[in-house]
Design a protein around this nucleic acid. Structure first.
Lengths: 338, 338
DNA sequence: CTGTTAGCGCATTCAG
DNA sequence: CTGAATGCGCTAACAG
């Protein structure tokens, strides 16, 4: 491999000092416009690419951010990750991955090790790690920047979130408009903020339609397919079966459909089912699933941009809100008359 | 944050020179056993963690490997990635992600940029990028190490693969044992080596059962759910419908099931369906899918180990083969009598 | 606005 | 087997 082009070579080619080149590269002020242009031309001509490690070492920055995740869903993660990568690429940052179990004291230790070993300039937290007890406090102590995707507590926090309560409320309105009056809800994993928001939206939807809350129609799940199956079995065993089931995510909704078909119930003729998240699977199962679309890729991109902003200009990160859309497909239909 | 512990501090604490500590850390020879132990103790006591960038800069190594992928399937990727990460972690390497479009000339340019910018010590190629025309030659020119997951051409190549032909053959034996004699196959994306291997297994399975190859029963797909739906529609429109459909992957198999249920065909009573890959979805759709399990996590781990071996000891990487297992679930059953 | 000097933390010579 | 000097490529602090 041809010996690397260094900043010195660029400086020489442009007839300026190393430092000036450095300033241009890092978009620092105090460079005359024509000097900047001349340097940029030399950079392009020589195809100069800064040496990552040298930059990190000298600048005491790693130009790395770490994406901390659990493993709720491969699709969710790949989407978020795609957005994070896109933003990192644009800003010349690298992304590290850090799969972590949010339970137990190991979490904090693991993050400390990560921070010591890779020295990331910032962390991106995804649910449910966003709300791991003690973590945020420790991060503040370590004085490390972080941004969160859909954290439970959004005060004094930078990141991105969606109005999930409103989305759940809209989904309820959809079901009600189809004539459903016995609507069940399968609650998500208790550790996720999303579970609470979606439940609240369900309750508000009930209220708005003048329906009264029936505890037997609300079953605890944990966001997994299997928990959806079990919850559905309970619901379908009720003397008065619900005519619609609103599962707090798509995986559980898939479980409900599976359970329904297995006992000969037709979806949506006998029972309507809807989910939340719009995973790719939701268009593929039979019948295709009515759900809420979350702009996960965009959320990944935005949370990264906010994190990088707060790294570069302390105090400048914000909590962003993104819009959702209802995806009405084939799994919801008019309530059966009886 | 307390000022960082440096190699110098460790050297002082152990009463040796920096270089000796360096030797111990990098498992180099020429250190007396008791010296090594003493140094190790100092490292542990001071909780010394080498500075990543400094190591890279001084040693002209990045301690980074890049995982190059397309985006065939989020689940497949997350699994492979998990294995890669596990191996990287154990070997103190970092992993970079590089999503890439395998078509067009951009691919090679993008990889060149990646190599220049992040200087990864090696690349891991996943299908179908493993077989991108011109890529392997360019990588050789750039003198960069790489290892491949399930490459089409496995001669003189390091990486990991599974005997997919044999697996497909076994799947055919399963169908034949259930009495099926009109068995269709939906071929995968033409750019993937896997498509060819699985088709070959299908043909060999036919031969073994004394069944003759019927071109109308072999439909081209492209590994997507939608292509599975379209292929199934063709197959189900045949005057003599197949009693079993062997799709070259799970996504297409899900499409077949979807199409079958949509036109009122029962699975497996009217038609058996099976796939390949054992994605998480395969246990979740209705009916659950008979498929071939590929140890993707382990493949990610192994390919990384081989890559790192070849980086550390040139010429030492191998092409590994891993075992598969047939996952017989509910989507295959006895052939209908007629 | 621009240049000069020093050193980030480590591995790598080459001596002992 | 071990140690002292040198520099990787870049940025930070200061000088001009």
């Amino acid at each position: 491999m041809a010996s690397r082009v260094r900043i010195e070579d660029v400086a020489e080619a442009a007839g300026v000092s190393m430092k000036t080149v450095s300033r241009v590269l890092n978009r620092e002020p105090n460079v005359r416009e024509d000097t900047r242009a001349r340097v940029q031309k030399a950079v392009d001509k020589l195809k100069y690419i800064p040496h990552f490690s040298a930059r990190s070492l000298a600048g005491n920055k790693s130009y790395l951010i770490a994406l901390i995740y659990n493993n709720p869903s491969a699709n969710y993660l790949m989407e978020v990750m795609g957005g994070v990568l896109a933003a990192c690429d644009a800003e010349q940052y690298g992304m590290l991955l850090c799969p972590l179990d949010p339970e137990g004291p190991r979490l904090i230790t693991a993050i400390e090790t990560l921070v010591a070993r890779s020295q990331p300039d910032g962390l991106i937290l995804t649910p449910p790690i966003t709300d791991a007890p003690g973590l945020l406090k420790r991060l503040a102590e370590l004085d490390i920047n972080y941004a969160s995707v859909s954290p439970k507590v959004q005060k004094k926090c930078i990141g991105v979130a969606m109005d999930e309560t409103q989305a759940a409320f809209d989904m309820m309105a959809h079901l009600v408009s189809l004539g459903h009056r016995r609507i069940a809800h399968i609650v998500g994993h208790p550790a996720h903020g999303a579970s609470g928001w979606r439940l609240t939206g369900y309750q508000q939807g009930l209220d708005r339609a003048g329906l009264k809350f029936d505890p037997s129609l609300v079953v605890q799940g944990e966001f997994s397919f299997d928990s959806g199956v079990r919850a559905a079995q309970k619901l379908f065993a009720l003397k008065k079966r619900p005519t619609a089931v609103f599962a707090a995510n798509d995986d559980m909704a898939a479980g409900v459909i599976h359970a329904a078909l297995e006992q000969g119930l037709r979806v949506p003729q006998d029972v309507s089912v809807c989910g939340f998240d719009d995973t790719p699977m939701s268009g593929q199962i039979f019948p295709s699933l009515t759900t809420v679309h979350q702009p996960t890729h965009e959320m990944g991109r935005l949370v990264t941009l906010e994190l990088l902003a707060s790294i570069q200009r302390p105090g400048s990160g914000r909590m962003l809100h993104v819009p959702y859309t209802l995806q009405v497909r084939k799994s919801t239909g008019p309530a059966p008359r009886n």
